[in-house]
Amino acid sequence: MDTYRYHGHSMSDPGSTYRTRDEITGVRQDRDPIERVRKLILSLELASPSELKDIEKEVRKETDEAIAKAKESPMPDPSELFTDVCVESYGAEAFGPDRKEVKAVLP
């Protein structure tokens, strides 16, 4: 799924110093993957708006429960830091918001 990071990388990076608010708003309106899938589901009549709303409520509930459980759980042992980390790189390209300019090619 082709997507876009709407916010900065961290609290010290607002994400608006190197791109305009119009760019962010435009991408959100035209390319947001969740909204695109929602529109597709509705256009194909795979679900009604109320069914999608119910799904969103259930997902929000599951997410809130998972967050609460994570906050209550103890921190993992530091020896687990590199458990299940994939080190093999297959390469990836990162594009600008207009999909024309390649920003970086990763090994």
Rank of each mutant, 00 (worst) to 15 (best):
V102D: 01
D22K: 06
A66I: 03
Q29P: 00
P33Q: 01
V59M: 04
P107Y: 05
M11R: 09
Y90P: 00
E56T: 03
D77A: 03
D22Y: 03
E72P: 01
S43D: 15
G96F: 12
G26E: 01
E45A: 11
R28A: 13
K100W: 04
R5K: 06
D84G: 15
G91I: 00
D84F: 15
A94F: 13
I41F: 04
I67N: 06
E56C: 01
S10Y: 11
I67K: 11
I41G: 03
P14L: 05
D54I: 00
D84N: 15
L42N: 13
T83F: 14
T63F: 11
L42P: 14
K71D: 09
S50L: 12
E35Q: 09
E35G: 06
A104Q: 11
E58K: 03
G15S: 09
I34A: 04
C86Q: 14
K57L: 01
I67M: 05
K103Y: 14
E56H: 07
M75L: 12
S50P: 04
D13S: 06
M1Y: 14
E88T: 07
P33H: 02
S12R: 11
P33C: 01
E51H: 07
A68R: 14
P97F: 12
I67C: 02
D54N: 08
I55M: 04
S89G: 10
V105Q: 05
I24M: 06
K71R: 13
S50V: 10
S50E: 15
A47Q: 08
Y90S: 02
E65I: 00
D64M: 06
R99E: 07
V87D: 04
A94L: 14
P74L: 07
S48G: 14
D98I: 04
P76A: 09
D64N: 13
S73H: 14
S89Q: 10
I34D: 02
T20G: 02
P76N: 05
Y4N: 02
V105R: 06
D22Q: 08
